[in-house]
Simulated assay, not measured.
Amino acid sequence: MAYPGAAMLARLASALMPLVRGLDAEKAHRLALRALRAGLAGRDESRDPVALGTHALGLNFTNPIGLAAGFDKDAEAVLPLMHLGFGFVEAGTVTPQPQAGNPKPRLFRLMEDQAVINRMGFNNGGLHDYLLRLEALPRPLPGVLGANVGVNKEGADPERDYPSLCQSAARLADYVTINVSSPNTPGLRDLQGEARLDSILEAVAPRTIGKPILVKLAPDLAEDALAPIIEVCVKHGIAGLIISNTTVARPASLRSPLKDQVGGLSGQPLFGPSTEMLARAFRIADGRLWLIGAGGVASGEQAYRKIRAGASLVQIYSGFALAGPALIPRIKKELAALLARDGFARVADAVGADA
């Protein structure tokens, strides 16, 4: 399967990425968003292979590769990002009120490890402006739109805020993700404990929202904590889980001089532990929840391993931030070839093959 737009995207990425890496990481990120809004990142006009089409969360996806929350926090570049070839884009995390986030610097590239550390702290312009941008998007969109929601650092009442956030975002997004797993907002990860999550989901009442509601989990959960959390999610009608968010662990294999920066680690070092957790969740959920695999995906082979571990959909972030737009058509081309090699007619046939 040829991708006519891929050559142009590859040339663009090759020309610009070395220059972008010379900038402060957060400045480079803002520059990338401005370039996307201006249409300077190009677009992939090719049709996705039929084998990559899939149905999950009650929604149809032309391909299972999505952009994780955190890249486009304020929904500034949803349409240009979809035009790069993503099957879905998750915008956010958005909070009820605007907040500046943590002091800078707060975003670090660990190039030796193909990783990123961030301690952004849910910096965003707040729900009001976020919803205006979603409302202004032309419909129908070329991909599935997800909204990722979280609570403010100050004045938060999760049982009050998450229901309001979910109801508001669900009017304009295809699904909504409840973020209770970022390590950069004090106390947030405590919300994914069984009892507190039960209270929050009781307040949200996912079955009444009208759109699929997901929960995003941390990879640092104790092994025996996963099953009770899954049962709480099933009890309240959660549609699926995203596994996983960034990790506060620091593998001994890290080589970058920035490895000890405080914050959540993403990228290649996260691939192993997040994929192991994904496979455990697949076995425990036993078909009762859809799973989205995130953490360390930067190739078609890695996306395929997430799918075989139990993911119906796959999200990327650090790999995209480090490699640029050319990564997306490359992942899709490699994934389609791997499915064909192993005799799978479609993505859904390979889900959980190794779990």
Score class of each variant (00 low, 15 high):
residue 354 D to Q: 10
residue 63 N to Q: 02
residue 27 K to M: 13
residue 319 G to E: 09
residue 322 L to D: 06
residue 317 Y to Q: 11
residue 136 A to I: 12
residue 261 Q to M: 07
residue 253 S to Y: 03
residue 199 S to M: 09
residue 162 Y to E: 09
residue 21 R to I: 13
residue 100 A to K: 09
residue 229 I to H: 05
residue 124 N to K: 02
residue 110 L to T: 06
residue 268 Q to V: 13
residue 39 G to M: 05
residue 280 R to V: 00
residue 53 G to L: 00
residue 138 P to H: 12
residue 99 Q to I: 04
residue 87 G to D: 11
residue 149 V to C: 08
residue 334 E to K: 10
residue 78 V to N: 00
residue 75 A to N: 08
residue 72 D to P: 08
residue 280 R to W: 03
residue 281 A to W: 05
residue 176 V to I: 07
residue 351 V to N: 07
residue 133 R to D: 00
residue 89 V to P: 04
residue 159 E to H: 10
residue 310 G to T: 05
residue 68 A to Y: 04
residue 179 N to S: 07
residue 10 A to I: 07
residue 165 L to C: 07
residue 179 N to T: 04
residue 52 L to T: 02
residue 347 V to D: 06
residue 29 H to T: 01
residue 205 A to K: 13
residue 149 V to F: 00
residue 129 D to R: 12
residue 46 S to W: 04
residue 62 T to H: 13
residue 346 R to Q: 14
residue 90 E to F: 04
residue 240 G to H: 05
residue 159 E to Q: 14
residue 116 V to T: 12
residue 232 V to E: 09
residue 309 A to R: 07
residue 155 G to W: 04
residue 251 P to T: 05
residue 148 N to H: 06
residue 270 L to W: 02
residue 334 E to Q: 15
residue 159 E to N: 15
residue 276 E to Q: 15
residue 28 A to R: 01
residue 251 P to E: 10
residue 87 G to Y: 01
residue 278 L to D: 03
residue 312 S to N: 14
residue 153 K to N: 12
residue 30 R to T: 13
residue 76 E to D: 15
residue 128 H to A: 15
residue 97 Q to R: 13
residue 265 L to A: 08
residue 355 A to D: 03
residue 159 E to T: 15
residue 141 L to F: 00
residue 111 M to T: 15
residue 86 F to T: 01
residue 17 M to H: 06
residue 79 L to A: 14
residue 127 L to V: 08
residue 251 P to A: 04
residue 264 G to T: 03
residue 354 D to L: 10
residue 37 R to L: 11
residue 138 P to N: 13
residue 123 N to Y: 00
residue 84 L to M: 09
residue 127 L to I: 00
residue 259 K to G: 12
residue 112 E to H: 11
residue 354 D to F: 00
residue 170 A to R: 01
residue 85 G to T: 04
residue 353 A to W: 05
residue 205 A to H: 11
residue 64 P to Q: 06
residue 158 P to N: 08
residue 42 G to N: 11
